[in-house]
Design a binder for these strands. Structure first.
Lengths: 199, 199
DNA sequence: GTCTATAGTGTGATAGAC
DNA sequence: GTCTATCACACTATAGAC
């Protein structure tokens, strides 16, 4: 018999985040009501406000947590110094990390416009930090002559789109393993920066 | 002195489409109300229902019109037979067409989940048709030995993400011309399918 | 910490006058 | 074809009991 009242702060908090993440990813921030989230968690709508001051902050915290965890994860791995090896490392890291968190990645791209101006600026700064990682690698590759990068900003945005696009269609349960995907994407990334000029 | 009543079917219809397109792209389908659209058009909310049976159909018609125009535009240009030349042609076409219609492209990617099941299936079929164009080119390139394409589906999805990602940051008014962009993206696309196996 | 109840506002869509 | 007025319902967020 289910309890109708009681204190569950330790477990309800994470459940609110998880429910909001899943529903925002599936239906979009604006299309999801606080009542839907509460229903998924198993509480009444009013109880959600013990865990977030409002719906906007709930979204913001999901994005901030994701971006900070992403940056921290990169910081914690060992990065090769050689630019090509570093680019391969980045490619494989990006694919592994992002394909494992489809909902977080999805809302991080789709719901930016639903952030308030202040919150948007914070998330954008974190995102810029991630892009900078790739740009530094491309810069080193360009300077060493190991890569052909006519414009670092263009190449970095193109490569991130290439890699993140994987989330649009890849499902782990499909016919291809993560290692297969990493291998094929690395072939394409390496080719994209190795191209020499010819018509 | 503005008229408060009258018949404007010829001009109001397109204005409704244009206002909905702009607002959906900026704020998202679920976050935009019929009253907002009416306000942008300069009519009252009730008048919109002379031009669409409901909000859902308004979104669907925007996406359908865009996808059909895209396919028709490709059909109307001259396509080289040589696979590499065809891939270059596709790359430049995709960039030119998409960078000229940022709002249409944006909602075509972001608002798919707000379509009803029936409408989604129709849009998805049109999208599949566009992907098929690229897959056919890659298939010919693979068979002729001119391209290294381990998995046609993987490569086509990756290249479309690479190219469409341009819309995330490119603004015609920026420091780079469309021709510059087309040149750099073609270098990357060609490299991505030309890579030979090496570690 | 969760509940019930509710304030105050906004929503998509329709009816009928002009 | 557009207007005004409205129905019936959903929304975020808060107040106060337990």
């Amino acid at each position: 018999m289910a309890r109708k009242q009681g204190s569950h702060s330790d477990i309800t908090g994470p459940k609110v985040q998880a429910a909001a993440l899943r529903l925002f990813a599936q239906h979009g921030f604006a299309a999801v009501s606080m009542r839907q989230i509460a229903s998924e968690v198993g509480v009444q709508a009013g109880a959600l406000y013990n865990y977030t001051p409002d719906k906007q902050t709930l979204l913001f915290e999901l994005l901030r947590t994701h971006m900070e965890a992403l940056l921290k994860a990169w910081d914690s791995i060992e990065r090769p110094i050689d630019p090509l090896a570093a680019l391969k490392c980045f490619t494989e890291f990006h694919i592994a990390y992002h394909s494992d968190r489809p909902d977080q990645v999805f809302i991080s791209y789709m719901e930016l416009r639903n952030l308030s101006a202040e919150n948007f600026a914070q998330i954008q700064a974190l995102r810029r930090g991630y892009e900078q990682i790739l740009e530094d690698i491309l810069h080193a590759g360009h300077d060493s002559g190991l890569m052909n990068v006519p414009d670092i900003r263009v190449t970095s945005m193109a490569l991130i789109a290439l890699l993140t696009g994987l989330n649009n269609w890849f499902r782990e349960s499909g016919r291809l393993s993560l290692a297969d995907i990493q291998g094929q994407y690395w072939l394409m990334v390496r080719g994209a920066v190795a191209a020499v000029d010819q018509t």
